[in-house]
């Protein structure tokens, strides 16, 4: 399928349908993948697509405003492109989505630990909750006929872990998150890798006024992580990039997943489901539950 991918990329560049293609190439270590930005036809030979292509490349779209960009995207990446389209951060005509069929990507810590044996691949947690392997939106699809059966099976109940956690007492839950967030070093990798975090001036960087402590202590860390989670409510599509990027292993997906679940139950809304749906928090429905106001 890499052959087909490269052929399509070359064609798009040659016919000037796009000025640049954002995709994946093999990293200098010879195992992992890294993002690559291609503007010349011959560079298309470097493009790859396999289980090591973990990144959600839609995060880079904001770097090239007004340019015609081709982007290689799997289902979860496409969902974030949809949210960006819903929120008018992208013009549909400016992007050409080369959809790739995905049967799950690897959990990177198996690579990073240095104890990897590339044969024993471990799929990322986020892929276990993911349903379709064909992106719901694309301009061209590169299908993966040969590898379909290798993928992970979606979990029956994606919110099982969240429910288990909810069953614990408030004190227990708070203690858990205090411990987790105490390790936060405020490197803002979660924000920087997130396609949905596109505010020109993040609340964390504002000084007039300062909204919460910038010191990496528990109080500031809690404020930062909770505020970010709230800003992602109804927008996070669970690409899991924040959790993957976090160098100190904070289970950020669980925070976002909890909000995702509540929103699903309260409003029957799923972020990134379709371009035509209105963003949850910018539309009003008379049937919305109002428990929180009463």
């Amino acid at each position: 399928m890499n052959v087909e991918l490269r052929k399509k990329a070359k064609e798009l560049l040659k016919t000037k349908q796009v000025e640049m293609i954002i995709g994946y190439q093999r990293g200098p270590d010879g195992i992992s993948a890294t993002p690559v930005f291609i503007t010349r036809e011959e560079e298309a030979e470097n493009l790859i697509w396999d289980v090591y292509c973990v990144y959600n490349l839609s995060n880079y779209l904001k770097d090239f405003p007004g340019k015609k960009i081709g982007i290689i995207a799997k289902e979860c990446d496409v969902r974030s492109i949809i949210v960006l389209l819903q929120e008018n951060q992208l013009k549909r005509d400016d992007i050409f989505i080369i959809g790739v069929e995905c049967s799950g990507v690897i959990a990177e810590h198996t690579l990073a630990s240095g104890k990897e044996s590339p044969g024993e691949l471990d799929f990322d947690e986020k892929c276990k909750a993911c349903r379709p392997s064909t992106p719901r939106l694309y301009d061209y699809l590169v299908s993966q006929k040969d590898q379909k059966d290798k993928g992970v099976l979606p979990e029956e109940n994606p919110y099982q872990d969240i429910r288990k956690f909810e069953a614990k007492s408030i004190e227990e839950r708070f203690k858990f998150w205090q411990e987790e967030f105490s390790r936060c070093i405020r490197c803002y990798a979660c924000r920087q890798i997130c396609p949905m975090c596109y505010c020109p001036r993040c609340v964390a960087d504002q000084t007039m006024p300062t909204w919460f402590s910038r010191a990496p202590d528990l109080e500031g860390n809690l404020a930062w992580n909770v505020i970010r989670a709230f800003h992602l409510a109804g927008r996070c599509i669970d690409c899991g990039e924040c959790e993957r990027a976090c160098p100190v292993g904070i289970p950020l997906r669980e925070v976002n997943k909890k909000i995702e679940k509540d929103i699903k139950e309260l409003f029957d809304y799923e972020a990134g489901a379709g371009v035509d749906q209105k963003p949850l928090l910018s539309c009003f429905d008379q049937n919305d539950p109002e428990d929180f106001i009463r």
Partner: peptide
């Protein structure tokens, strides 16, 4: 630098990076 996401991991985790900010808070 194109793929850089402008986070602070490389600098914060570096044993030699030492750039800092001075902040007045409370």
């Amino acid at each position: 630098s194109r793929s850089c996401i402008s986070c602070g991991i490389c600098t914060y985790l570096c044993p030699t990076c030492h750039c800092f900010d001075l902040i007045d808070e409370r």
